[in-house]
Design a protein around this nucleic acid. Structure first.
Length: 443
RNA sequence: GCGGUCGUAGCUCAACUGGUUAGAGCACUCGCCUGUCACGCGAGAGGUUGCGGGUUCAAGUCCCGUCGACCGCGCCA
């Protein structure tokens, strides 16, 4: 018999149907057995009545088993209607169950509160929980909204290489790949140089892909492999064009989530933030002065904000400006990569920005050096050898428009949208220095 | 890499200043249950307290080492 999706059952009252799904819950009452079944479209209750031919199979149908279930869609008696629940007014009177993928007894109850360690060691199972499904549906919708917005703004998506010749930017630790005969190769820490090259090709480009960082960090906000939402655009005036674009992007993403993921945010007890007409922004030095004035902590000689400063500044922005977001601009030249443009009106500081969201840095961006000689000066100033960048430099040798862009951490963004304590909860299969698919590498 | 906290049943957690046979809820097994929706009720089984050493009449508890996890920091997205 043809498959009916669970989400379509409410229109089939009185009909005989077959659903394909997973046994989500079993409530065995002896002479009667109730199930909740789930498929990709939702959940429905099934009931095996006394003396049903399906009773024997029902008794041995374990939670998480994949099944094909045939039965009749019935309206529930008035007193058994559960308001506000999908299919709460109907149920499937089960006539046959076929177990097509039997599950063994689970090591823990579905939807139990697990320690992060237990969750991560059992991902093939724990990713099936309602909570995990909610997190990764939201993440998937974020990527979809990102792609939709930038495409509409005239950006062209491209794939950046992950195997690269040099660590190029000189920022962050890189994984070495010992394969190529006569060259050192690495895993890309960013698509940075390639997306700049692609500005010369398409003017506006973006990519959403995995990047690799070999830092031996152990924090709630770092991964050794994460998804970078990158973009780069030509013919900008300065970094404010980028900040304005990102403001519009965040508004688009939050509107999209409101339309598609309200249930998932409710499951996780999280709020979708409002994006103000203008996200507040200030220079790094202004932020440091503010922190000094308000808290007494003098960090005005620091080249960057510490995590505790980022948290404080976000609380300030939320309270004083009603925004979950705040831009910090003008980091010192010494603190930023060689391609970052210095502000001609504020020497020693760059036309760069970070976007902070709910206490953490989710984006770094800025205007780039687009003049050939100016870029070579930038490379030399960092103590790097321009010859090593000749491939990249060719783009500039033959003319590049003023341009800039950003890189955004998808897992951080997801984690902060959903108030997750650790970014590893927002990565399907997170890699860190002690963990790569633990269960698979055991034995 | 450094600092802090922790490691007790399959899971989540108890066990006061060291003190008799290490407990609970859920899961599991058996029995009962014709309207449950985290079904319920009764009974049962389940532990080398991460591992190694030490102090003590006595160690889950104190000390040393080791392995592991989580949190914070550096670095970053």
């Amino acid at each position: 018999m043809e498959r009916t999706l669970i989400g379509e059952l409410s229109g089939k009252v009185g009909q005989e149907v077959t659903i394909f799904g997973v046994a989500d819950v079993r409530r065995d009452q002896g002479k009667m057995v109730f199930f909740d079944f789930r498929d990709r479209s939702g959940k429905v209750q099934g009931v095996v009545l006394p003396n049903s031919p399906a009773m024997d199979v029902a008794k041995e149908t374990t939670i998480e088993s994949s099944v094909r279930v045939s039965g009749i869609v019935n309206k529930r008696p008035e007193k058994n209607v559960v308001a506000g629940k999908q299919n709460g007014d109907i149920e499937l009177e089960i006539q046959g169950i076929e177990i097509v993928g039997k599950a063994e007894v689970l090591p823990f109850e579905p939807d139990a509160e697990l320690n992060l360690d237990t969750h991560l060691d059992n991902l093939p199972l724990t990713l099936r929980t309602e909570r995990s499904r909610a997190i990764f549906k939201v993440q998937s919708e974020i990527i979809g909204a990102y792609r939709e917005f930038l495409t509409k703004e005239g950006f062209r998506e491209f794939q950046a290489p992950k195997l690269i010749g040099d660590d190029a930017e000189g920022s962050g630790e890189v994984f070495e790949v010992p394969y190529f005969y006569d060259k050192t190769a690495h895993l890309a820490t960013s698509p940075q140089l390639y997306k700049q090259i692609m500005v010369g090709v398409f003017e506006r480009v973006f990519c959403a892909g995995i990047v690799f960082r070999a830092e031996k960090h152990a924090t709630t906000r770092h991964l050794n492999e994460y998804t970078s939402l990158d973009m780069e655009m030509g013919f900008i005036e300065d970094h404010h064009d980028l900040m304005n674009m990102e403001t519009k992007l965040m508004r688009h993403i939050t509107d999209h989530l409101r339309a598609t993921c309200a249930d998932e945010f409710a499951i996780l007890g999280a709020d979708i933030p409002k994006v103000p007409e203008e996200i507040p922004f200030m220079k790094l030095r202004e932020a440091q002065e503010l922190i000094k004035k308000e808290t007494g902590a003098d960090k005005t000689n620091e080249p960057d904000l510490e995590p505790e400063d980022e948290r404080w500044l976000c609380e300030w922005a939320a309270k004083e400006r009603g925004s979950d977001f705040i831009f910090v601009t003008h980091y010192p030249v010494a603190k930023r990569p060689m391609y970052t443009m210095e502000d001609e009106n504020d020497k020693g500081f760059t036309k760069s920005f970070d976007l902070l969201f709910r206490g953490i840095e989710i984006t770094t961006g800025g205007q780039r050096r687009h003049d050939y000689q100016n870029l070579i000066d930038g490379i030399k100033m960092k103590g790097l050898n321009p010859d090593q960048f000749s491939y990249y430099l060719q783009a500039f040798k033959y003319g590049m428009p003023p341009h800039g862009g950003w890189g955004m951490g998808l897992e951080r963004l997801t984690a902060k949208f959903l108030n997750l304590a650790n970014v590893k909860e927002a990565a399907l299969f997170p890699r860190d220095i002690n963990r790569i698919d633990t269960r698979l590498s055991e034995n």
